[in-house]
Amino acid sequence: MPHRKTWTTVGVAAVVVAAAAIAVPALTGATGGEAVPATTHRPTATASTAPAVPAVDAAALAALPEARYSAVVGGLLPVDRTVSSAEVFRLRADAPLFGDDRQHPVARFAATDFLGQPTTVVGLRHEGAWELVLTPARQALPSTAGGHAAAQTAAWVPAASLEQQATPTSHVVISTADQTVSIVSSTGQVSRSFPAGVGTSDTPTPTGVTGYLEQRYVDPSQGTGDHPIQLTSLHSSADDEPYGGSDGGLIGLHWNAAASGAVSHGCVRLSADGVAAIDALPLGTLVTVE
């Protein structure tokens, strides 16, 4: 699809995801950070064993880099594993994100996303006054991390900044080997499955990782017709910009006439029926790539 982008807030946000795409300048930062802890969502640690939440005033919060889809924030926690369960939240207001030490904020989670809609937040684990959440930003670029970077990141956020939403009852499983996209129930039953086009060997779809449905919008200029593009929080782990430009290497599920085989720059191509099925799932639905 054409590689260009113009933003609007009325459903036509020209985010380029024919092959891992949203064409806007990426922010850059340090590339340090430890791997995220075990990611099974469970109530753990009481307030007495988890560190207290440090105060972050309004000026300090505003000065932090926003952990948006195109950002690279070294203090985030890289995630290179799958996640089996999670909870969905919205932010009551902009909130600070913390790395492992939970003492010094590394980024800001904005309460509204790039379309001006409430930001969907996916929580993995609760500890005292904290929630470990997935973020839409990168921790490092592949070009600065030996050719491979985490496709997903996480961070700690003060739990008081979150407002819980309904938890999705299904999740999405993308099989790059079988070239399929399946909708799987909470009991592990496959309710629907569709053929899919996945990344080539040069621009692979990242595997062994879980993200979430971050946002969706319609943008016919990207060659996806009137089928909503399903944007995930995942990024290319092998290339800074698989589709060229400066779009953050995002992975989306979207319509394309060639919806089978290893044919994309990292995104996942689906038929109209496949896109409609994913579009019916709530934002925050987990997306695992195998």
Rank of each mutant, 00 (worst) to 15 (best):
residue 69 Y to L: 14
residue 137 A to L: 01
residue 134 L to A: 06
residue 271 S to Y: 06
residue 217 Y to G: 02
residue 259 A to R: 03
residue 165 Q to S: 14
residue 158 P to G: 03
residue 283 L to P: 02
residue 2 P to A: 14
residue 140 A to N: 05
residue 185 S to M: 10
residue 3 H to E: 13
residue 219 D to K: 00
residue 265 H to W: 09
residue 47 A to E: 07
residue 107 A to E: 01
residue 198 V to E: 11
residue 108 R to W: 02
residue 40 T to Y: 11
residue 59 A to N: 05
residue 152 Q to H: 06
residue 30 A to F: 00
residue 275 V to G: 07
residue 161 S to K: 04
residue 116 G to Y: 09
residue 39 T to M: 14
residue 289 V to N: 10
residue 4 R to P: 01
residue 17 V to G: 15
residue 114 F to Y: 08
residue 21 A to K: 05
residue 166 A to C: 02
residue 13 A to T: 11
residue 287 V to K: 09
residue 12 V to S: 07
residue 144 T to F: 00
residue 36 V to C: 14
residue 162 L to T: 10
residue 221 S to L: 15
residue 234 L to K: 08
residue 236 S to K: 06
residue 71 A to E: 04
residue 86 A to V: 08
residue 17 V to M: 08
residue 72 V to E: 03
residue 14 A to H: 11
residue 4 R to W: 14
residue 81 R to E: 14
residue 206 P to D: 09
residue 157 V to E: 01
residue 242 P to H: 10
residue 8 T to Y: 11
residue 198 V to L: 09
residue 273 D to S: 15
residue 41 H to S: 08
residue 268 V to F: 10
residue 71 A to D: 04
residue 199 G to L: 10
residue 88 V to S: 09
residue 231 L to P: 00
residue 53 V to D: 02
residue 234 L to Y: 06
residue 105 P to W: 02
residue 106 V to W: 01
residue 287 V to M: 11
residue 228 P to H: 08
residue 45 A to W: 02
residue 114 F to R: 10
residue 114 F to T: 07
residue 267 C to W: 04
residue 237 S to I: 03
residue 143 S to Y: 06
residue 148 H to L: 14
residue 86 A to I: 07
residue 130 W to C: 04
residue 4 R to I: 12
residue 99 G to K: 01
residue 146 G to P: 04
